[in-house]
Design a protein around this nucleic acid. Structure first.
Length: 152
DNA sequence: GCCAACGTTGGC
DNA sequence: GCCAACGTTGGC
């Protein structure tokens, strides 16, 4: 099973929100590289590391699981919505999202600073300079290390 | 609030 | 197709 990292600002949508709702459609991604992952690569059953960006401290806050593969993001079609994109249409949707379900909120969320100090994570996308992608692939080894830190 | 990194837009 | 201007992300 593949593993991914999804970023979210907790002031917008946090792991607590996901725990309350149990599952959610991950909408609002407006970056083509991230869109391609959502539309083409992310599959049911994949793990999702739920990362809190712009948080104090920024950290991997919990684990979620993909419960539905990519489908068009309807918020792009709604002119009143913040994420509206006039280039998208029902016939030719540009933006996609997946459905994820809450699995776990970590007792010891590994902070960005902590992750930077872990040898086995040196190549993790999140830790690369200028890594702004909000949807990132995580290797199985990286995923294991992060989960071990979070639960250990 | 600052600012580096980087994606997107639009004039040419 | 180039590239300057602009907007956004996100750590600090």
């Amino acid at each position: 099973m593949a593993c991914w990292l999804f970023k979210s600002e907790p002031s917008v949508y946090s792991i607590d929100d996901l725990r309350r709702e149990r599952r959610t459609f991950w909408d609002g991604v407006r970056n083509y590289q991230a869109r391609n992952f959502l539309r083409d690569a992310i599959a049911v059953g994949d793990d999702v590391l739920f990362y809190h960006s712009n948080a104090q401290p920024p950290a991997v806050a919990g684990l979620a699981r993909v419960v539905k593969a990519g489908s068009p993001d309807a918020t792009a079609l709604d002119p009143k919505h913040d994420h509206y994109d006039p280039k998208s249409s029902r016939e030719n949707p540009i933006w996609y999202g997946v459905d994820i379900a809450f699995v776990e909120e970590f007792e010891n969320p590994p902070s960005l600073e902590t992750l930077r100090g872990v040898t086995g994570l040196a190549k993790m996308a999140l830790l690369q300079k200028g890594s702004r992608l909000s949807i990132q692939p995580v290797t199985p080894a990286e995923c294991r290390i992060v989960l071990a830190l979070a639960r250990g």
